[in-house]
Amino acid sequence: MIDIDNFTPLTALVGGGLIGLAAAILYAFNGRVLGASGITASALEGVVHPAAGEGLSWRVAFLVGVIIGPAVYMLMTGALPQSDYIAQDGRLVIAGLIVGLGTGLGSGCTSGHGICGLARFSKRSLAAVITFMATGFITTFVINHLVGL
């Protein structure tokens, strides 16, 4: 059943449009793919091994910008966006670890594969998106309806 009360297609579409715009700007001006995991991994690499730090500054500026984003939202609306966690403590740590490992191995996440990769019709990105959507749906089914975590 679709949960009509919490369905927010308009803000989702506007927010998604801004995400697409951010990706378009980064590509048009810097020639770079907007992948949150890839930019984070490369920035981390640049910090740990400064010799390999070519392109560190725009990446750090991007990451700082992403953190400023919710603050801009707060200036516009008076509050930070609603954020209620579904996981705490150990589960949250394990989830973070798996997300980092998975996006590192898979060379991308929801932004890099989901928005940028699909927009240039990359077969690798399509395969990645189908795969992470599938395991996301299955895992949620297991936790919510089989084991009730």
């Binding site: 394990i94 980092g100 490992l101 998975g102 191995l105 932004s111 992470f132 996301g136 299955i138 936790i143």
Partner: peptide, 19 residues
């Protein structure tokens, strides 16, 4: 690619956050 994406989906569902 596929193993990483599969793991990512599991972690995304467990934590509700992507990168």
């Amino acid at each position: 690619l596929l193993g990483g994406a599969a793991l990512f989906g599991i972690g995304w569902a467990l934590g509700g956050l992507c990168p």
